[in-house]
Structure formats: C-alpha cells, structure tokens
C-alpha cells in the first residue's frame, strides 16, 4: 500500500499563478477524478507534478509514502513511481514504443532477456488494446490520430505499471469501443493484487476528464472540482452527475 500526497501545491507559469493551495491524497488502488472547466489548471497540475520546465512550484510538497519528491527531476519522479499520460503527447520520429520501454526498463531491470520479454508484452497488449502493428514500428505517436496516441500511451502504462498515474483526458479522442478497452485495462491495473495476493496494492490514479463516460468502466472513489486553480469541492461519484446536469455554474458563482 502506497500513498501519494500533495500538500498546499502552488504553481506559476509565465509569471502567472495558475494553481494555489491544492491538496490531494491518493492511496494505492484508488481512482480520483479531477474535473473543471477549460483553463482551470488541470494540465498545469499534472505538468507541475512532473517538474515540467515551464512550470514552477511556488509552494507546497509532493510526497510518495512520506518521502518528499517535490524537487526531484522528472525522470527520478517517474522512477519513484509516478506515470503521466499526457493530454497531447508529442510525436518522436524514429523512436518506437519498444525503444522507449526498453530504455525505461533498462533503468530498473539491468539483466535478463529484456528484448524478448518486452516485445512479447508489447504484442500482447497491442492485441488487447486493438493497436495496429504499423503504429509500433513507427516513431511513437508519429502520424497517429488522437485516439491512437491515447492507446499507445495506455500500452506503455500497462507495460511498466507505476504506483500512481495521472491520466490527463484519457478519454479524449477515443471511440466508444476503444474507451472501453483502454479504461478496462487501466481498471485492471487499479485492481491488481500484490504478489502475495493482497488486494489494494494496485495503481492509484488521478483521472482528468470532462465527462462521466470513462467512469462507467473506471468507477471513481473521489471526485475533485478544480475551479480557477483551486479545489473547490471534493465528493463521491455523484458530484460528476451534478456537473453533467448543471455545468460548473453553481461553483463558479461561489468561487
């Protein structure tokens, strides 16, 4: 059982304070939903969590199992157990998904027959997530559609499951069938048992979304509303239905 703790996080970009006083506590196997209007600061939150060079943490702390990782560099945060599925992942010519996974795996698992292990795993997941093999031979995300990119990101997530993942608009671009496949695959990671068979050892996730659809397959334990850089309300899954019914109006007025 692990815990990701975000305490009083404040973030600035281009001289503008985008987030302030954000608190969040996610345990292994939990699904947290982060909702909010366009421009509220959801992507900023994710980028800042990973130490993106354009975002500056002006206050607060990020902890994994009590260990302060706020000032670690991006790759060290990833190695500490954080994964990021970007809203708009970039395209990298000539660098295949397998190149990435092998390099990332090399960092944690130096020996053994990594190539075979990885290529078998990738093929199995590609079949599960319905990913065209041509996409795996090209540079990651190059000339891929929006939905294909999300599938490729989900594949990488499943290959090297982290302790915690931030899924920024996992659902955007995915068609109805793909959404089901991808979110079910994520759900499997969330429900994963520990090697000794204990429940509650799975991946903890923060899902950024605008719609309740993804939650059909990935039921939320907690829902947070982020308005204008602040978490204004935290509740259970019913909060999503309120937003769907009324929009953000009631909270905007109050903030």
């Amino acid at each position: 059982m692990s815990e990701l703790q975000i305490i009083d996080l404040g973030v600035e970009t281009s001289g503008k304070q985008v987030l302030s006083g954000v608190n969040l506590r996610v345990k292994s196997g939990e699904v947290h939903v982060l909702m909010g209007p366009n421009g509220a600061g959801k992507t900023t939150f994710a980028n800042a969590l990973f130490g993106h060079y354009r975002y500056k943490v002006t206050s607060g702390q990020i902890l994994i199992d009590g260990k302060d990782i706020t000032d670690l560099s991006t790759f060290e945060k990833a190695r500490a157990g954080l994964a990021f599925l970007m809203q708009e992942p970039p395209e990298i010519p000539g660098v295949t998904v397998e190149n990435i996974l092998l390099t990332a795996l090399g960092a944690t698992r130096p020996s053994g027959n990594r190539e075979t292990y990885m290529s078998e795993k990738v093929s199995a997941l590609a079949a599960k997530l319905d990913i065209n093999s041509a996409l795996l031979e090209r540079g990651v995300n190059t000339d891929a559609s929006g939905g294909e990119k999300k599938r490729l990101e989900a594949l990488q997530l499943c290959c090297l499951p982290p302790k915690f993942a931030v899924l920024d608009e996992l659902d955007s671009g995915l068609d109805v069938d793909a959404l089901k496949k991808v979110s079910t695959a994520v759900k499997d990671l969330v429900d994963a048992k520990s090697p000794t068979g204990k429940a509650g050892a799975g991946m903890g996730v923060i899902v950024v979304t605008h719609y309740n659809r993804v939650l059909e397959y990935l039921p939320a334990d907690k829902v947070h509303l982020l308005i204008d850089g602040k978490i204004v309300e935290t509740g259970d899954a019913s909060l999503v239905d309120q937003v769907e019914a009324k929009g953000y109006g009631p909270w905007l007025a109050g903030s």
């Binding site: 560099s73 990833a78 954080l82 970039p90 990298i92 990435i100 390099t103 090297l160």
Partner: peptide
C-alpha cells in the same frame, strides 16, 4: 525539442 525530452523523462528515462 525540450518537450520530447520531457516526455521521455516522464517514462523514467534519464536526460
């Protein structure tokens, strides 16, 4: 492109 390095670093790959 720094965005590409950032992306790879989020996968646990050192700079």
């Amino acid at each position: 492109d720094k965005e590409l390095s950032f992306y790879l670093e989020t996968k646990g790959i050192d700079p």
